[in-house]
């Protein structure tokens, strides 16, 4: 059993059910960023983790995914 990367609650996957939307949004967003700027997955996560319009949960999750070296699915 893992802990949610955002709220540290028990979770089967990277994030708990409550935060599954955040993970989904990050994945969906990558397609748009790749098309717009031609970024790699890591560059995308890096930019997202510092983007001022990104939600706080998004910034936190992007940073942790980057630290953990989680690859694009």
């Amino acid at each position: 059993m893992n802990k949610c990367l955002i709220c540290e609650r028990k979770s089967e996957s990277l994030v708990c059910e409550q935060h599954s939307k955040v993970y989904k949004n990050i994945l969906e967003g990558y397609e748009l960023w790749k098309k717009a700027k031609g970024l790699s997955w890591n560059d995308y996560l890096s930019e997202l983790s510092e983007n001022r319009y990104a939600g706080a949960w998004v910034r936190l999750l992007a940073k942790k995914m980057l630290e953990l070296g989680i690859r694009a699915p």
Partner: peptide
């Protein structure tokens, strides 16, 4: 608030 916290911006 959840929508804001989960928001992924798109560049344009």
């Amino acid at each position: 608030e959840k929508e804001i916290l989960s928001f992924v911006p798109t560049p344009y």
